[in-house]
Amino acid sequence: MSKVQSGSGFKWMLWISGIVLLPLLFGLGLWQLDRAEQKRELLDSWQQAKPSQELPLEQEMTRGSYKAVILKGVLDRERYFLLDNRVRNGRVGYEIVALFIEDSGRSVLVNLGWVLASLDRGVLPEVEVPKGQQTISGSVRVIEKGFALSGDDLEEEQWPKVIQQLDVGKMSSRLVIDIESLEIRLTEPLVPGLDLNWPVVNMKPEKHLGYAFQWFAMASALLCLLIWSAVKIRKEAIYEQV
């Protein structure tokens, strides 16, 4: 095989590799567009939710959306969780998650808000969970099942317990009570000093659109390169035959 034929074969291999890569780039762009739409719907559900007097059951909730609720019940003052590594304005802290037992008997998790963590991570924040009958106002969402994370030691007797994610199964087992897979984020404060400026999404729709543009731009550039290289390879093939 001549050097010309060898070089031509290598160019064809690169061209075929580009053809395989092209749909992947377009697919990533479409995926980012879909993520942007999901984030937009989530933000709309947070902003447009209307107060209700009844907590919807999990099967009536749309995953990835919020619904406003007003509930009456009591909080477990002695046993609550510190959801770790929650960042606000570049600062690390905890979200305080407590068990709420509604008057109807249903049990859900209430996120009371965010508090700044101490520089000494061995020092946990002290939170005075309100006692007695409470009326809470907030937005409820279905707790999605996430990846298993290490670092949650729920077997220790000491409270509060530091956790890395909301695992309803483990938390129900530790509290010895059935908890619905719902989290209520308060919109009206119950505990002074806790931050209720909730980050509804971790990435704005506009950023997903920016990523989509980048993927489509790379795909377009690759398409142009493939067309140019195909024409060049074809011309070289014709030249070799002459």
Rank of each mutant, 00 (worst) to 15 (best):
M1N: 02
K3Q: 10
Q5I: 08
G7V: 04
W12A: 01
W12H: 01
W12N: 00
M13S: 05
W15I: 00
I16F: 03
L21G: 02
G27V: 00
G29W: 01
W31S: 02
E41Y: 04
S45G: 03
W46H: 03
W46L: 02
W46S: 03
Q47H: 04
E54F: 10
E54S: 15
E54M: 12
L55G: 04
L55P: 04
R63G: 08
G64E: 06
K67E: 13
I70Q: 10
D76C: 05
D76M: 13
D76A: 06
Y80F: 12
Y80A: 08
Y80L: 07
F81A: 05
F81W: 12
D84Q: 15
V87W: 10
R88T: 04
G90P: 02
R91A: 14
V92Y: 10
I96L: 12
A98F: 09
I101C: 09
D103K: 08
V110I: 11
V110L: 12
L112E: 02
G113T: 05
V115S: 06
A117S: 13
A117C: 10
A117M: 13
D120T: 13
D120V: 14
L124D: 11
E128N: 09
P130L: 10
S137K: 11
V140F: 08
F147I: 10
S150R: 13
E156F: 15
Q158W: 14
W159E: 12
V162N: 13
Q165F: 14
D167G: 14
D167S: 15
D167H: 13
G169W: 14
G169R: 14
M171R: 14
R174D: 13
R174C: 15
L175Q: 13
S181G: 15
R185M: 14
L190C: 04
P192H: 08
G193I: 10
N197D: 11
V200A: 03
V200G: 01
V201M: 06
E206N: 07
K207Y: 09
F213I: 06
Q214C: 03
A219N: 02
L223W: 01
L225Y: 00
L226S: 00
W228G: 00
S229F: 02
A237I: 06
Y239F: 13
Q241D: 11
Q241L: 15
